[in-house]
Nucleic acid binder design. Structure first.
Lengths: 211, 211
DNA sequence: TAGATTGTTAATCGATTAACAATC
DNA sequence: TAGATTGTTAATCGATTAACAATC
């Protein structure tokens, strides 16, 4: 195991995909797999798979390959999926509600415990059993509940205002759907989901670039 | 201008961010900017900015810097944002409806023209003025309308079934929110938005990796 | 003109792939 | 044991950063 240097983002971004493929293998009753077999299924090089996995440990066995279930469980632990997380959403609009309604997150241990909005028409409503609270209560809520991840699903100017409140009250991660870059301390993780940027990758690619 | 080799994905993924920062500068009435100034605002190296832009042309001027409006318009063209696109959503659930309701896409020229679902309770409903149609009509709709981009917002097994229908009927791009890798010909662009994977980046990072 | 700043080449850094000895 | 396949080192490839001549 090669543990002398920091693991790069490129490697970490590939882990969920390994996890997904291993889960599929498990579902299909496949108990062992070689890096070579897996590489063909995933369309990556076997070398990359072995390099990636060896960043975290020696999970394979010469002449045999990898035990699917064992590897699956290891990656689960590496990704922190053996724990559960409490999430709150700030912004109770369509996107916020869609995220709460998406049951796959809860299946992985990501539990939404509250939604906040400033729109009086939304406050008091219940979405998937979760009440929409007044954003004025955000601070006191954070003080009285364990909240791991804050989800920003509101316009960019509001996101910039809310982020510091989350940070000051001990949030560990921010899942940012607002179209703005947040400036937070190093100990707070920000993961951006910029949907507009993602769409632009498509428009770029279907045009080719022409002078 | 360095036009001898293919432009890498890394560069293209940075373009929307340049575009956004230039838009902000414009909004603030700033008419010129040097790569050095921009690099400080964006927290990247000036060298990278100049290298990136020069992949597409010589947009700057020695001793002056870049004209903000001109550069903004150039990147707009590069990203294909000077055109409009017709989109359909397959999957009229919460996520599909949230996407249709999000008006920022239309502002950039991405217009939703139909939603498809197989749930009789949804078929016939109208979301943001767009009717939810029976997915059985998908093929004929594609034959009779110009559709550029198909958005997959449905469970993975259904996504795998629908993708070939889109491909066979001339779709140019697929915006895939389903948690599955699609296998499509090279001339069809696939952009994945794997929200669960994104969340896992957060859970990984807030735990650190512990043996 | 002198100062500023680009466009671009060269140097560095990091990530991916290839190769193979170790070993199950 | 012989064959298979890992873990890991070495080679390659590509992306980022530094440097600077060109020039506005």
């Amino acid at each position: 195991m090669n543990n002398d240097k920091k693991i790069s983002v490129a490697v970490i971004k590939r882990l969920p995909r390994y996890y997904r493929y291993l889960g599929d293998l498990l579902d299909n009753g496949i108990t062992r797999i070689s890096s070579n077999d897996l590489s063909k299924r995933m369309n990556v090089t076997a070398s990359q798979i072995r390099q990636d996995l060896n960043k975290f440990g020696c999970f394979g066995q010469q002449g045999y390959g990898y035990n699917v279930e064992l590897l699956y469980e290891e990656i689960k632990k590496i990704l922190g999926l053996n724990k559960t997380y409490n999430l709150i959403i700030i912004g109770g609009g369509n996107l916020g509600q869609a995220l709460v309604n998406y049951s796959n997150f809860a299946r992985r241990g990501f539990n939404f415990i509250a939604i906040f909005d400033r729109n009086p028409k939304l406050i008091g409503l219940t979405v998937s059993g979760i009440e929409i609270l007044d954003v004025a209560e955000l601070k006191s809520f954070l003080e009285n509940n364990r909240v791991d991840i804050g989800v920003l699903a509101l316009p960019k100017d509001n996101a910039k205002q809310v982020a510091p409140i989350l940070v000051e009250n001990g949030i560990k991660g921010i899942w940012n759907f607002s179209h703005v870059d947040l400036d937070v301390p190093d100990n707070v993780v920000v993961e951006n989901v910029h949907l507009t940027d993602s769409l632009m990758q498509i428009s770029y690619a279907i045009n080719g670039y022409v002078e």
